[in-house]
Amino acid sequence: MMQASSSSRRRQPIHDDETDGGDVLQRPSHQPPATSRHRGATAARSQPHARGDEAQAASGSSGQGQQPRVRAADYRPQPLDRDSAAAVGQMIAGYGPHEDTIRQAMASLEEATSDLCEVEETIDNEAFVQLDADYRELVDAQAEAKTRKTSLEALLRRLEGEPTVLDPATEYSNLTCEQLEAYSALTTRKKYGQSQEYVSFRESAWAAVEDSAMPPINEFLPAEQGDEDDDDDDIQVGGTRQDYKCPYSAKLLIDPVSSTGCPHSYDRESILSYVGKGEKVCPASACNVKLSHRSLKPDPRLAKRVAAYRRREESRILSAPGTMIE
């Protein structure tokens, strides 16, 4: 009787409520799979409180001791209102140091290139070609920074005129991409021939090895499809000979300063003596610009060119036939 009772217990089906206890009867490995009803109950037990969690997620609350659930919507672009104008202004101001870094890199590269050209006595070598390509990349980086800054300024103007910008991320992206694509489509001449920084870079390299005027900048840049649309009246940058003599003292520049109101440069000591404490008309021929201490600024770039010119003149004198070197 005891044996029959034991066998009867082993053949009894496993009910759902029996699995809630501490002892769970194990099905032998040869026993057929559980019915669909049993599988459903097992799946429900393997994901406890699933429905409760869904309800909590829908209501935005969490259970006791649980971390709040992260919602993807919290990380999507949010609208901007006028209270956000200060933050946008800070983003715009943040481009200032970035632009300063680019300008410093340009100045350093221009100086290094000028020194190299003076030592090599040429601008027609592989080293200069690589430095020229590097400088053009800086011009491109400067254009991109200006574009991104302009897009943020456009958003800021929108906030000044409208209470809310609903999708600022998309608007910023569209504005920026449109302008960057337009810049990328420009020809080489239109990208760099109109860049004052690039023209100055080429002028420094030219002045390091040549005394004559630099040819127009377009002579260094290949013509491409689209350049034929340029007006014939467009002024080509370059071709002006740098005069290294002071228009007041007529002597070679020493510690040059340049006017902020006209394109002329002077020897510091001579021009400051001429101007005195007031204002005087620029001593250059046919120039009527008023000069003062405030309008005269140091010009280290010109000082380097004058120094290179002086060294070339000394080299010519020493190499001239019949020159006696003590």
Rank of each mutant, 00 (worst) to 15 (best):
Q142A: 13
Q194T: 13
I217F: 06
A154M: 07
D211Y: 14
V209I: 14
A208Y: 09
T187Y: 07
E197A: 15
E224H: 13
L138D: 04
Y135R: 05
D140I: 07
G238R: 05
Q179S: 11
R148T: 09
A205P: 09
L159A: 06
K190G: 09
D232W: 07
L138F: 02
S184N: 11
E210Q: 14
D227A: 03
Y198N: 00
I235F: 12
W206M: 03
L155S: 05
P215Q: 03
A182S: 04
A185L: 09
G161D: 07
C177E: 08
Y248V: 00
L166R: 14
S184E: 15
V199G: 06
P216Q: 00
G193D: 02
T164K: 13
R157M: 12
D229S: 12
T176L: 08
T176D: 13
T150K: 14
P215N: 06
Q130K: 08
A141S: 13
R148N: 05
D167G: 04
T147N: 11
P168S: 06
D233A: 15
E137F: 05
L152V: 03
D140E: 14
E137M: 12
A207Y: 01
N218P: 02
G161F: 02
I235Q: 10
R241T: 06
N174Y: 04
A213H: 02
V209R: 11
S195K: 03
R189H: 10
K245Y: 14
E178V: 15
A141I: 01
Y244L: 09
L175V: 01
D231G: 15
D234G: 06
A182W: 05
R148Q: 15
R241M: 07
V237G: 00
K146D: 09
P168K: 04
Y192W: 04
V139Q: 08
E219C: 02
S195M: 11
A154P: 00
G238L: 06
R158F: 05
L180Y: 04
G226Y: 08
Y248S: 08
F201E: 01
E181G: 07
K191F: 10
E160P: 01
A182P: 11
R241P: 00
C246L: 05
R148I: 09
L186E: 09
E210Y: 08
E178D: 13
Q225K: 15
E153K: 09
E178G: 06
L156E: 11
T170N: 14
S173Y: 04
D134W: 06
E137T: 11
D233F: 14
P168C: 10
T188G: 05
D231K: 15
A223W: 03
L159Y: 13
I235L: 13
R241K: 15
V165H: 03
A185S: 12
R158D: 14
N174P: 00
G226H: 10
D140A: 05
Q142H: 12
